[in-house]
Design a protein around this nucleic acid. Structure first.
Lengths: 329, 329
DNA sequence: TCCTTTCTTGTAACCGCTTACATAATAGCA
DNA sequence: TGCTATTATGTAAGCGGTTACAAGAAAGGA
């Protein structure tokens, strides 16, 4: 059942049916009723593909919001985590008639700007419930990228840190390691917490004692005190699983200043799979998250929400892939 | 950049470009090269919306596979969990030019049948890694519905049982309950395990002792021995959170045979939000999972995989909604 | 060499919907 | 009542692909 058939049944033109479907102003109430009746009678459901194709002319305006901290480190030529995520967003935007604009999350948006924004992508772990509520209140659809807030029902795209971490730990255990330490960033960031949970659960499932240290990843300060403390209290671990690649590389650097060799003395595994790790010495073993895909999935989900009125929010989590390189046995 | 422009640049017709894009046989290698070069030069990316609309004629054949156990209880007029999920699949199928066929999971599929199957939906907690591998091997895309297998990277759509359970427990705690018991189905079913984890974690976060009992939900046997044991060992709880609505209703029935009143003596909360619970006495408080949406999301994801070559598998989890009715305070 | 078969390529209709533009109907007003 | 301003509806051209069908080119066979 398509709109031509409906038009015939209702004895009007397709244009009128379309107008009714889109709540256009210029339809007399009598014809509207008539069309609505036929629509209901035949249980008409619009073909989203056709709708979207035909709506080519109204392109979707998407705001990409990034916290200042991340925006600063953002270089669209680089292959850092968020640079690639955003490239993924833009790639998908090209294929979905959308234009994107990157804005600092801390900015106060004026109404003018918001007027022709169809949807917002909030990127990164700094996104809070407040940000989400702001857009919800004014009725603009939102998708979080690389962030999850359990207490707010809102769409998001994240990596599956729990199972990724679990995989890393299991792998290390399969290499006969038992003293496996986790060095992580702030646990109020969902991503770190998720990986942390996966680490702890898997250690416990294998009757091993989890041991973890928190490191301020935001400023990337000196890691020596932390490692020093670890060595004194816990001794030299057999393996270290780090929250992400930057931390993992910092760990390796710091260990070397203690004359501890990677991977001979300690195996190190990171998380993210950024390009830099590939060219590090030694090349970093890691759990690669499909960053590009993360971005494009988020954009596609946003489009789905805007056009197809998908009203139930979902969490989309991407599987990670273990990449074994030189930093681990 | 669309295929007409490409055709012009390559000095061929749009049909030829389309043939190259779809790896059609009947294109001479010289023209193919020529077109491919232009395609690359202009970084052509196909518009998935247009492609899908135009491909109307080749409808997508989707196999819905359900375990015998579930298929038996399946009545498409009923409002049971999987009946609604499957309705959701079929609704989405209508809007996505797909025809579905329901098959028993235990069936051996002959090659004939598999030949014109474009994708498979494996529905329910009985799906195993084996099932998935079977279809992966022969290159047919698969999406799991209401099942997650951490060890196999495959797309799936599930409900967010962890946060749902967590919400229920927090709610009960907010009602000043402390003795909160969890009665669950077999924990090797992902859904039950997920809810169980949410229950345990939230209890512990609130310094309460988790206490749970496993009940064989597959045969729905007599629950009296279980409840009897609970009453003797643990005493009368203040609240019971059940793995799903059928178990919750069974709990209420059994409690009443012990002259324990719901919700006066014990508050009971279920999970699923099936229709039956609404008309139960007392009406069941529950966490409603959007079953219809679960089905349609799964179908849409399958279509995305088949047509847009989305190659990175994802887990899509749906938020649940707490519905307070008479069975809890 | 000529005719038939097979392989390539092009033309144009179509998928289901939107919308600019044209036209018809109605209302407003002198 | 006649003329203009406004509103309601229809017509038809897209959106960017696919594919049935037609036609032209190359190959094969007598």
């Amino acid at each position: 059942m398509n709109i031509r058939e409906i038009a015939k049944k209702a004895e009007v033109s397709t244009a009128t049916v379309s107008r009714v479907l889109n709540n256009s102003e210029n339809v007399s109430s009598t014809t509207r009723e008539k069309v609505l009746k036929v629509l209901k009678e035949y249980r008409f459901e619009m073909d989203p593909w056709a709708k979207h194709l035909a709506s080519k002319r109204n392109i979707t305006h998407v705001l990409i919001m990034v916290s200042r901290r991340i925006l600063g480190s953002l270089d669209l030529k680089s292959k850092e985590f968020y640079s690639i995520v955003i490239k993924g967003i833009q790639t998908a935007a090209n294929m979905n008639r959308s234009v994107t604009e990157i804005v600092e999350m801390e900015t106060n948006l004026d109404e003018e700007k918001l007027k022709n924004v169809d949807g917002v992508l909030l990127v990164g772990g700094d996104t809070t419930a407040e940000h989400v509520r702001f857009f919800k209140k004014i009725g603009i659809p939102v998708v979080l990228v690389d962030q999850y807030i359990p207490t707010v029902k809102v769409d998001c795209v994240v990596s599956n840190g729990y199972d990724g971490a679990s995989y890393a730990v299991k792998y290390l255990i399969s290499q006969r390691f038992k003293k496996i330490v986790h060095i992580h960033g702030f646990l109020n960031h969902f991503g770190f917490k998720d990986r942390y949970n996966g680490y702890v659960a898997t250690m416990e499932q294998n009757n091993l004692l989890p041991k973890s240290y928190e490191y301020n990843d935001e400023v990337m300060e000196d890691m020596k005190p932390l490692i020093d403390k670890m060595l004194n209290v816990y001794g030299v671990p057999e393996a270290i699983f780090a929250s992400n690649d930057p931390i993992a590389m910092k760990v390796i650097e710091t260990l070397s200043s203690f004359h501890i060799k990677v991977p001979e003395d300690v195996s190190v595994i990171g998380f993210d799979g950024i390009e830099k790790g590939k060219h590090f010495t030694p090349p970093l073993s890691t759990l690669k998250v499909p960053m590009h895909e993360m971005g494009s999935l988020a954009l596609k989900r946003l489009i789905d929400i805007v056009y197809n009125q998908d009203i139930y929010p979902v969490r989309i989590s991407l599987f990670t892939e273990f990449i074994k390189r030189g930093s681990s046995i």
